[in-house]
Design a protein around this nucleic acid. Structure first.
Lengths: 128, 128
DNA sequence: CAGAATCCATTCGGATACTG
DNA sequence: CAGTATCCGAATGGATTCTG
């Protein structure tokens, strides 16, 4: 996305420190940086094949449009699969793809850690 | 942020599946979901105490305002420390706090994985 | 049930210019 | 060098309404 090509970014004073290039991390991180994206992955990873309403319930009060958008994005990105059953009432099940599972494995530690942080936090401590 | 308090979110039909509550994941995940946030953590984790310009260089073309905001947020959230030296020219060094280091450890696998994904991706493949 | 569509307030992030 | 200040377009996410 509009990144300047790093053809001249080789700093002459590059120490032999293992400096990795974080520039091209567009795609994946972009998707993960959307609201609830990481949580959705982990929720689906946690409750197996998950129906829309199950995922919805896992969050407090996400609007259906937001959740729907997120799910679409994750499906299109190849991290979630969407199985639709032609039943009455309709049923749709989301699940992790192979890619999504790899992602989930790496995401889970963060989510768990995040929960710990939230748990041990005194409410009304930050100035804002 | 505006989440409905989950004082009554205990679904009565809770199967004995290990269902974790992902509702209160506000704070931490919120911060991480901002642009470059995760990358910044990992960049600082990678290049040790990092100066502003070093961090800036690690990305393609972030605007200083955006990066500055991100750094502030991460400092205030307690994941980065900011050491300012009263020199001419001024020098500021960011580093991971203990908390930030824990986060970085969990973030790194994702970033690395993300890079792999980007690497093995054929450009111009997705419909969009 | 599982969304799609629409509308809208808010926020975000980039560009630019300026400062200690 | 390391930002801050300001402005503004774009994108995001929520509420609401409607549908197969």
């Amino acid at each position: 996305m509009g990144e300047t090509p790093d053809t001249s970014t080789d700093a002459p004073n590059s120490q032999n420190r293992e400096i990795v290039c974080y520039c091209p991390l567009g795609g994946v991180m972009d998707i993960l940086s959307r609201r609830y994206a990481m949580q959705v992955i982990c929720v689906v990873g946690a409750i197996g094949p998950a129906r829309y309403s199950e995922i919805e319930d896992a969050f407090g009060g996400v609007s259906s449009s937001t959740l729907s958008t997120r799910l679409d994005e994750l499906v299109e990105a190849g991290y979630l699969s969407r199985e639709q059953y032609a039943e009455i009432p309709p049923r749709v099940e989301y699940d992790l793809t192979a890619s999504g599972e790899q992602l989930c494995q790496r995401l889970d530690p963060i989510l768990e850690w995040a929960e710990e942080q939230e748990a041990g936090r005194v409410p009304g401590e930050d100035g804002t």
